[in-house]
Simulated scan of single mutants.
Amino acid sequence: MSFDNAYEALTEDNDTRWAFGTGFADPLAGLDTTVPSGVDAAELARTCLWLGDDALIMSHRLQEWCAAAPELEDEVALANIGLDLLGQARLLLARAAKADPSLVPPVNQSDEDALAFFRDAADFHNVRLVELAGGDFAFSMARLLVFSTWRLALFQRLVDSPDQVLAAIASKGIKELTYHRDYAARWVVRLGDGTELSHERMQAGIDAVWPYVDELFDGDSVLRDEFDAVIAQVMTAGTLKQPPIHSVPTPGAHTEHLEPLLAEMQSVARAHPDATW
């Protein structure tokens, strides 16, 4: 399998697999994964690892809504959004491993499986927003809106990455993230501009996720301005108030929710480390 460029190799027309359980050992098979000249391999690996961890943990949180969403249509939608993110995670973790093989735990698994299932919480680099447990549907829609709006703006920049593999992943991810953002925005507006109770719960959801927003930007004012413009439109349409800036202390530290999440997510792989599926 060979293609002229990585984007072509990642299009659906070429039957590239995107999620676990496909029997496809290497998600980057057919791509030239050589780190381009002038690109810092370690920094590229870190970027892909962080983005992959964000997608992996957020995917797990979304899958928790299976059999619990308000309507059957939303069961399907949230499952598909979770699978989109799982596909992004698989590609990004595989790219991180190709760029810096020293990141991969020494287990008998594919690179992306090893990174997903055999690292401890301290070795994950995801933002804290995706770790948060519990909350009602309004909270989950608030989180998805914030996460997808931020990630979409970030991926729109990454299409210009000098690494053609990362650029291709971002190009395809933009289509998915646009849907994720729009799906969440419709629910935020629907609940915010609905009944008195739905408005109250939607505002509470926004208030709960807002302390974790600043960590997403790390001082990038341009990216933050793009994010704020989109969020302001949704807030206005939903008759909601954007909370004052209030960040959770100790940026970069994980919450108490990550270890239980990983214990659940990694349990089968760690119980049967030599298994294949």
Rank of each mutant, 00 (worst) to 15 (best):
residue 263 A to R: 15
residue 277 W to H: 14
residue 172 K to I: 10
residue 83 L to E: 08
residue 135 G to A: 04
residue 74 D to R: 10
residue 220 D to Y: 08
residue 203 Q to C: 06
residue 103 L to T: 08
residue 124 F to K: 00
residue 156 Q to F: 08
residue 247 S to C: 11
residue 267 S to Q: 14
residue 216 L to C: 05
residue 10 L to R: 04
residue 123 D to F: 04
residue 25 A to Q: 14
residue 236 T to N: 13
residue 114 A to C: 11
residue 227 F to E: 01
residue 217 F to R: 07
residue 61 R to S: 05
residue 179 Y to I: 07
residue 95 R to H: 10
residue 194 G to K: 01
residue 69 A to G: 09
residue 94 A to F: 01
residue 250 T to N: 15
residue 137 F to D: 05
residue 259 E to L: 12
residue 70 P to C: 09
residue 110 S to F: 01
residue 208 A to P: 00
residue 50 W to M: 12
residue 221 S to I: 14
residue 158 L to G: 05
residue 84 D to Y: 07
residue 146 V to H: 03
residue 100 D to A: 12
residue 86 L to N: 03
residue 5 N to M: 11
residue 110 S to Y: 04
residue 56 L to T: 00
residue 32 D to W: 10
residue 261 L to G: 02
residue 12 E to C: 12
residue 234 V to G: 04
residue 172 K to A: 09
residue 269 A to K: 07
residue 205 G to L: 00
residue 62 L to S: 02
residue 189 V to T: 08
residue 37 S to W: 10
residue 69 A to N: 09
residue 270 R to F: 10
residue 30 G to P: 04
residue 164 Q to C: 09
residue 119 R to S: 12
residue 32 D to A: 08
residue 217 F to Q: 08
residue 40 D to F: 10
residue 201 R to V: 00
residue 268 V to H: 14
residue 137 F to L: 11
residue 240 L to F: 06
residue 223 L to D: 05
residue 205 G to P: 02
residue 30 G to K: 03
residue 216 L to N: 03
residue 115 L to E: 06
